[in-house]
């Protein structure tokens, strides 16, 4: 049943697809991570209409360290998936750019870092100052 997954994990290191093989795997993992978050996020936010008490309780749960760390992972996954997805879409719509694939990969990693690093730092700083101020 999971032969494909086992093969991917075992052969991933051996496959000579270079950086773009890892980008492909990272794109799938980050995409599944964002999807898992969105399913909980959309259903959680919808309780503001169905049952505000549940919604308020959920907001308090979100203000705990476990969810703050998860939110940092989400930020990294989302920024990476967005920038890497842009690279994939642009390259597949523009075959004449295929000769510059590795340059495009490095560029998308650089943009992910430039956009993602300040996002993570600011979010971590906001979370830390919240927990220090409230003593939770």
């Amino acid at each position: 049943m999971l032969n494909g997954l086992v093969t991917t994990v075992r052969e991933g290191a051996r496959y000579k697809g270079e950086s773009n093989q890892w980008m492909w795997i990272a794109h799938r993992i980050s995409g599944l991570g964002v999807l898992l978050f969105l399913v909980t996020h959309i259903s959680g936010m919808s309780f503001s209409y169905f049952n505000p008490k549940v919604h308020e309780a959920l907001i308090e749960i979100y203000k705990t360290p476990l969810f703050s760390v998860g939110e940092l992972f989400l930020a990294a996954c989302l920024v990476f998936h967005a920038i890497n997805g842009t690279r994939i879409a642009l390259l597949e719509l523009k075959p004449e750019w295929w000769s510059e694939q590795h340059k495009a990969t490095r560029a998308s990693l650089l943009i992910t870092f430039v956009l993602g690093a300040p996002t993570l730092v600011i979010m971590a700083w906001k979370s830390l100052s919240f927990y220090l101020a409230t003593g939770r």
Partner: peptide, 30 residues
Amino acid sequence: MRFSGLILVFLSLSHFWLQHLIVGTHQLQF
């Protein structure tokens, strides 16, 4: 997948940076 992805880059990042970064989950009020 290509076109929804390109649109979602702007929609999802603008939402994330506004609500999760500028507003912040810890400041979230009903």
